[in-house]
Write a protein that binds this DNA or RNA. Structure first.
Lengths: 227, 227
DNA sequence: ATCAATATTTAGGTATACCATAAGATCGTA
DNA sequence: TACGATCTTATGGTATACCTAAATATTGAT
């Protein structure tokens, strides 16, 4: 109330800086697989492609480097980070711990409003799955989890999980679509949603664990094929 | 073997870049409390103090921003991140999960060599505690956990925990020294070490949980006092 | 004396210029 | 022909210059 009372009258006035735009663009390029692991990120080339100066590109690279999406080898410049199965397995292990805990916490506090949000997210997810819209599926899955983490109040854990997800994004895109080995992805999610709507923390945690166990297994298979 | 065979003959030739040096220097300044939470980081001032150009400082800030040590508010520039109890609690929760899991995994695989490393780290920790050397204690505690995570093969989890630790560093320094409420810090560590040396995963995990529960409780008290 | 309008300063955002180094190409000699 | 030395170029590291916006101080008028 002590702030400016008419936030919605503000001029559009681009609150996002050019640097943030470029960071996001490069992050998407890496996550979406447009840049492959091991690709060199040549500054001047990126500058030309993006139409910005080196300062902007370099600062974006520094940010992505700290995120683990880019690695800078001394005197050779930055390259897109690669991930072997050992690293991917560790990330799935961490996600299992954090997501199970978040789902349990969410189940403990879930009220009608949260349950509604969750069901809606699940609906989107289902829709994307049947349309075989891979990108939409990815976003919907992310949204589903975002609802869970946010409702649980696990904001920092969500931050951590999002970061890690960026590093296994290509795997994730693959596992999401091919996830019909044991149970399809949405079926897993439905179980999680159901457990939370029943306010059953242990069942929610268990559902998450089994989903991630499946995903990790598929990822392992895919990674071994790819190499 | 396919590399240059005489690494030790190499010219000093500073393999670390100026930017990395500045990043580390600023990180230390924040972690050690020389910069307080909420302090503005004025680029040109930092340039003068560090004797480098703005490019270097800005890239370092971007890196620390991604690490969560610095926050950039739109149109006001970067400030040192602050942490309230809600954030700190979340970080302790995440640490509890990851460290308990790592300790259990370590207990499963610990052989004589790992046990020896752990005991040595514990010795250092004890020494620092009795010398009341706060900085040394901090480093020794970090080393102790590094041994555990490394032995468990949880390298990425260690990365995550280290990041998060940076964000609660001031709290951590305080809890370490004042940790003699229920059991002193080294006593907790000794229990963890013992459980791992007994190859008892569940006891190790439990010891970690009780240590962190204690630490979080102390932190909460301190944070409430400080505000 | 107070309020408002303008000038000044400060700081961040962006672009560019310069330098050093490492890898690759070219040319000369054995 | 093959090896080596030198030159070129591509690339990253570093410094600086310029612009815009916001905050603050200053000055003038009521």
């Amino acid at each position: 109330m002590d702030q400016t009372p008419d936030d919605d009258l503000r001029i559009a006035h681009s609150p996002t800086t050019l640097r943030e735009l470029v960071t996001e663009k490069m992050r998407q390029a890496i996550i979406s697989g447009r840049f492959n692991g091991g690709d060199r990120l040549i500054e001047r080339t990126l500058c030309d492609q993006l139409g910005v100066s080196r300062s902007v590109v370099r600062e974006a690279i520094r940010y992505l480097e700290a995120e683990g999406l880019v690695e800078s080898v001394s005197r050779a410049g930055p390259v897109v980070a690669t991930l072997d199965w050992n690293g991917a397995r560790q990330i799935y292990d961490i996600r299992r711990l954090l997501e199970a805990e978040a789902a349990a916490a969410c189940a403990r506090v879930a009220d009608a409003s949260i349950k509604a949000q969750l069901r809606q997210a699940l609906g989107e997810l289902d829709k994307a799955f049947h349309q075989e819209a891979s990108l939409h599926l990815y976003a919907a899955t992310t949204d589903f989890y975002r609802v869970i983490f946010t409702a649980a109040g696990h904001l920092i854990a969500w931050e951590v999980v999002s970061r890690l997800n960026g590093r296994i994004s290509r795997l994730r895109a693959l596992t999401l679509s091919s996830s019909n080995r044991r149970i399809s992805g949405p079926a897993h999610m439905a179980r999680i949603c159901q457990a939370i709507c029943d306010n059953d923390p242990e069942a929610a945690a268990q559902a998450v664990r089994s989903h991630l166990g499946d995903a990790a297994e598929i990822a392992q298979t895919l990674l071994k094929d790819a190499r």
